[in-house]
Design a protein around this nucleic acid. Structure first.
Length: 425
RNA sequence: GGAGACGUCGCAUAGUCAGGUCUAGUGCGCGGCCCUGCUAAGGCCGUGAGGGGGGCAACCUCCUCCGUGGGUUCAAAUCCCACCGUCUCCGCCA
């Protein structure tokens, strides 16, 4: 949720942000109108309420005929107060709902436009000439994974349906190794390791901005009214819900390990082969609470940590600055790291780090104490590693015989294993 | 799953049975000032959150919040209902 004060005092800033996102600008004026009506209704209610409290006290003291008169007046006021209160509450609800439809105000410098309008900030490493090296077209991750006895999508589909899979044998070990390495990297950067709930209450899901435009991406359990998280970001943001946090010793940094669930409702027919786009995967996610002033600098730190992890697994990648129209509703800026995918001759998103400024924290009521009272903090998140990384690791490090070289940084997590060899027939 | 107890301002607790002087008291903690040669001890004052209105501002004023949401009532921390959570005991499953 954006800051109503900001919208009141600088509506043009919000309008410009809406324009860059390709969203409706007119909601700004609708909000301003609703807001002034709400305040008028509230003032009216409060004045009546104050009078009601005064008269109410007289009821207790009066007696006889006087009491009857006062009581009559009190009853009259009670009815009026109820009506005005309902009116003010209805307007407040309407205002809140409308305010929720507005995406976070983008940071200056975010490219305008849609999905295709990202800006490449840098490219690191060069894709190997695998055709020359292998003497054939590179195998894709599924062919490699099946050859290694590492990935089983057929049985995943048999047991759970499309977009489910088993990681088997060395595949399971590889994921554990990758995520442990990711967690250790995060710890080295000062993050506190966390294993988080994957089912959360509606208020937390809503507070983190996942029940807006893309709510059909989220699994819901109606019997218990709980949501399955698509990232531990949700649980890590909810961790300090309603709290006044202490940032005097620097930002609060958490690294969450969790399963992630996504319905992939809008992606029928896209990335259907293998484990690129699946309903369930695992992820180590960084999450930070910091001051609004420090948010942009912290965003750069998150990106640097992600790049360090990509370097550890020796993948060629590029960093893009996502365009405004492709940002989630809570992000004010988002950088993605995309690794080269040899089988498809394209880049594939492996990490995503968002600066959500005060958007999530405002909705979740997360503040810090300052000399002049309290204020809403800023939150940020970023991917350390996910199951999907296996795709890029297998493909980029494949060898002519279908084996896969293990990046050096992962070897300690695999008992020193240097090569993933195909299962013997 | 069953029975019981409980949820009050950072922490602890009073208030709930008997609805209105609760504008939620007290202690601890925290902050400021004072006293004392130093220390120990003591005294005084202040100290939750959100929002509306006024003021350049320090500040003033009003409303809301006693786990959450409903209800009863002129009036709810207090009575009623539902839910959530914590604790104790029992049962069941690991």
């Amino acid at each position: 949720m954006i800051d109503l004060q900001l919208l009141r005092h600088s509506p043009d800033v919000v309008r410009a942000s809406q324009r860059a996102r390709g969203d409706d600008e007119s909601v700004v004026d609708q909000v301003l109108d609703l807001d002034s009506r709400r305040r008028a209704a509230q003032t009216e209610f409060e004045q009546l309420r104050a009078e009601q409290k005064q008269v109410g006290k007289q009821v207790a003291q009066a007696s006889g005929a006087q009491k009857d008169a006062v009581l009559a007046r009190a009853k009259e006021l009670s009815a009026q107060v109820k009506a005005r209160e309902a009116e003010a509450a209805a307007l407040a609800g309407e205002l809140d709902e409308l305010l929720m439809t507005i995406g976070n105000v983008i940071v200056d410098g975010v490219p305008a436009g849609g999905e295709e309008d990202y800006v490449v900030l840098k490219t690191v490493g060069t894709p190997q000439d695998l055709v020359a090296e292998l003497g054939r077209d590179p195998r894709d991750h599924l062919e490699l994974g099946e050859g290694l006895g590492a990935i089983d999508t057929e049985r995943g589909a048999k047991v759970s349906g499309a977009r489910f899979y088993y990681l088997t044998g060395i595949g399971a070990r590889l994921e554990l190794a990758l995520l442990n390495a990711a967690m250790d990297t995060a710890i080295a950067h000062g993050f506190t390791p966390m294993i988080t709930p994957t089912l959360v209450k509606p208020e937390v899901m809503r507070g983190t901005g996942f029940l807006g435009k893309h709510s059909d991406e989220v699994y819901h359990l109606p019997t218990d009214d709980l949501y399955l998280v698509g990232t531990s970001e949700v649980a890590l943001a909810g961790y300090h819900e309603g709290e006044i946090v202490d940032l005097s010793n620097g930002p609060l940094r958490y690294a969450g390990w969790s399963a992630c669930y996504r319905r992939e409702a809008g992606s029928y027919g896209k990335d259907t082969r293998g484990i690129i786009r699946v309903h369930q995967f695992h992820k180590v996610e960084m999450f930070v609470y910091t001051t609004p002033e420090d948010a942009e600098a912290e965003h750069a730190r998150l990106l640097a940590a992600e790049e360090e992890m990509l370097a550890k697994v020796e993948l060629p990648y590029r960093v893009i600055d996502t365009a405004a129209g492709d940002l989630g509703s809570s992000a004010a800026r988002k950088y993605d790291c995309e690794a080269w995918l040899p089988s498809q001759q394209r880049y594939l998103e492996l990490t995503s780090t968002s600066n959500t400024t005060t958007f999530q924290a405002r909705r979740l009521g997360i503040r810090e104490r300052t000399e002049n009272g309290t204020r809403v903090v800023a939150t940020l998140n970023g991917t350390m590693a996910t199951t999907r990384w296996i795709v890029a690791i297998l493909e980029n490090h494949q060898q002519p015989d279908g084996s896969v070289r293990v990046p050096e940084a992962l070897r300690p997590y695999l008992g020193g294993l240097e090569v993933l060899a195909p299962a013997s027939p």
